[in-house]
Design a protein around this nucleic acid. Structure first.
Lengths: 204, 204
DNA sequence: TGTACATCAGTGAACGCGCGTTCACTGATGTAC
DNA sequence: TGTACATCAGTGAACGCGCGTTCACTGATGTAC
């Protein structure tokens, strides 16, 4: 759905979801700084006043997009785990690679999710999605150490260390701060970040 | 120098530096998304056309501010190291705490330095300042392992691991993603992040 | 030391732009009877 | 099944706003002689 292909009906049908997709495009191309509701409406092929029927303002649209981002982050982590061979630690490392891969594939969205105060992170659809992604990490720590983050304060250090490591890798890669060899093969890349993520894991 | 206290002379004297300070205020209060050159000029107490004599555009001003940020980041790291007691590893950990402290004290500036494409990171004043801060980290790795990042590819993993960990901690803390206990004493905070940073350090 | 003049730094009015918001409207859909 | 009506979703013109940019200007400073 875009401005090139005008709709046949007066009503759109699924403008809400179309606007979220348009917002992702807008964000990826213009960045958060130049993001505008009018731009999203144009991409969705509707008049600039139409979005008001679905989202109170730009921040509400960005909140919905961020929630979708957290869902996709969770899926990226669990998919990578499901594909991984080996033991619990290998699953844990794979989930971290999934986290980093998501960030590298969706830099602007990742930035919205973690580096912006525009989405309302207290709003249940968003906080729930964030909590579910976080749950993948705490679940892995629980499986490896037997310590439950929800009830055992001692699990905190393991959880923070693992999260900070994958998050830092993601941010530095997105910001192109790590000058990795040009055209580094995927295999070597995964091997490098896996070794680093493993280092952040719970103590044996 | 601000709009409350009008200058006595027609010429400002040091508008360039005043504008950088004003830009930092503007950034901290409004964020990158609402940052404007007119706002900086107003804070500096000059007409909105005056900055053009010192900076080509807003991005040039932000580049100068980012360079200053990297200088201050480096100082935060080296100061923390100088104060630390113990061996090389303790110095290394202290430099990481200095990194995290800088980020927490200057969230908007940190965001400009690492999360924005608006500053020109290739411009020598900025890339040099960034390189110097990075040099503190590689210097510590060299001191601990004997491996020189500049010449020894094997040092890369240690450097990336350490940087990613402190950077990830910084971002998560700034974004208020880690729900640390309310009013956690400084000592406990330092102890927690020190343990985590130590985990990312070079292998014994 | 004075004077003339070039250059520099800051002013303030004017401009066009894209933004969010409002509003009366219209076309489409759903529901009561 | 048909009709009347309420509600919903999208339109397009209008608004005021702050933005960056341009421009002729003016006051201050530096320099040549």
């Amino acid at each position: 759905m875009n401005e090139q292909s005008p709709r046949k009906t007066y009503h759109h049908g699924d403008l809400r979801q179309t606007l979220i997709a348009a917002a992702e495009e807008e964000l990826a191309e213009k960045g958060l700084e130049a993001f505008s509701l009018r731009g999203c409406a144009k991409r969705a092929g509707v008049s600039h006043a139409a979005p008001a029927h679905h989202f109170k303002d730009a921040d509400a649209l960005l909140s919905a997009l961020a929630a979708e981002g957290f869902d996709r982050l969770r899926v990226s982590m669990t998919t990578a785990m499901a594909r991984a061979e080996g033991g619990l630690e290998d699953k844990f490392v794979a989930s971290g690679v999934g986290y980093v891969d998501f960030a590298c594939a969706n830099p602007a969205l990742f930035h919205l999710m973690f580096g912006s105060r525009r989405p309302d992170h207290e709003h249940p659809p968003l906080s729930d999605a964030g909590g579910s992604a976080f749950g993948v990490l705490t679940g892995n720590i629980l499986a490896m150490t037997g310590r439950d983050y929800a009830t055992d304060p001692a699990a905190g250090e393991d959880v923070i260390a693992a999260w900070a490591m994958v998050h830092g890798l993601s941010e530095l890669l997105i910001g192109d701060k790590l000058h990795l060899p040009e055209g580094m093969p995927r295999e070597a890349f995964v091997s490098l970040i896996s070794a680093i993520i493993r280092r952040s894991g719970p103590r044996a």
